[in-house]
């Protein structure tokens, strides 16, 4: 195995340009599982752990190398809530948001917040420099993204005007160490509610029909919330798998979205 430890971003981009098939290693919480279970024996690995440029954490910019442990303490409210539900303290000390974005699992805990915040994914390559990919163009399928082979995810770029009323919750078999059965983020701003869900489609998704319905209402009454939850349940596109059933996920999606709308109003 070829192993390259990049010490700064230029070195990482040069290495990725030279060896586009090199697998990127950050916290190791996804890649090492694949390797240990012998699903994957990459011929070359490029480690990003030492790249200082990926460690930046400000309101507007979350470096790809920022761990869940840091986001739990210093992230935007909804993302901090999501970070606290990732794995265990050991996993949160190692795993990064850039890894979550790159893996692009439908169940990625950080992803519903990214699409509710309408953040962009900043990627870089030696050849083409910086590309900033909007949230709705990055995730294209189950564990598939629009990242090119020679590119590295460098940051999540957060719009300046992201509203501060943000709520995250997920459903799973226990509190710790659980991959979500359904996850949800609600962000409430002057323009209304944004509703994003995970584990209910091939990619994290916005419940646009439910958003349109609730944002047309002037008062959020019980009957409005009932109708809203019903539309969320209809709108999601879950499957039945070893973790849950389609029917349960539809139900839980509606319950979670409704609950988070109520929380965001408190």
């Amino acid at each position: 195995m070829d192993f390259i430890a990049a010490h700064d971003l230029d070195e990482a981009l040069a290495a990725k340009a030279h060896q586009p098939d090199a697998l990127l290693l950050a916290g190791g919480t996804d890649l090492m599982v694949e390797i240990n279970l012998a699903h994957h024996r990459p011929s070359s690995v490029l480690s990003l752990r030492r790249v200082e440029e990926l460690q930046e954490l400000t309101a507007g910019r979350i470096g790809a190398g920022v761990t869940w442990a840091r986001l739990e303490r210093n992230g935007h409210r909804g993302l901090a809530q999501a970070a606290r539900t990732v794995g265990s303290p050991q996993i949160r000390a190692a795993g990064t948001i850039g890894g979550n974005v790159a893996t692009a699992s439908p169940a990625g805990d950080g992803l519903p917040w990214i699409i509710a915040a309408e953040a962009s994914i900043e990627v870089q390559s030696k050849e083409r420099g910086i590309r900033t990919i909007p949230w709705n163009e990055f995730f294209v399928g189950v564990k598939r993204t629009s990242l090119a082979a020679d590119e590295i995810i460098t940051a999540v770029v957060v719009p300046e005007d992201v509203p501060i009323a943000q709520e995250f919750a997920k459903v799973g078999a226990r509190n710790a160490m659980v991959i979500s059965t359904v996850s949800c983020v609600v962000i409430r701003g002057d323009d209304g509610f944004r509703v994003a869900l995970g584990s209910v489609a091939t990619t994290p998704m916005r419940a646009t029909r439910a958003e349109e319905m609730i944002n047309a209402e002037s008062t959020i009454s019980d009957s409005v919330l009932d109708e809203f939850a019903h539309i969320v349940s209809e709108e999601v596109r879950p499957i039945t798998d070893h973790r849950s059933t389609e029917g349960y996920r539809r139900h839980a999606a509606g319950v979670l979205a409704r609950r988070l709308v109520e929380r965001s109003l408190r």
Partner: peptide, 14 residues
């Protein structure tokens, strides 16, 4: 940091 040593690649621990 307390981490799972099974998820650290030995080559990356240099």
């Amino acid at each position: 940091e307390a981490v799972c040593s099974c998820l650290v690649m030995a080559a990356d621990a240099d």
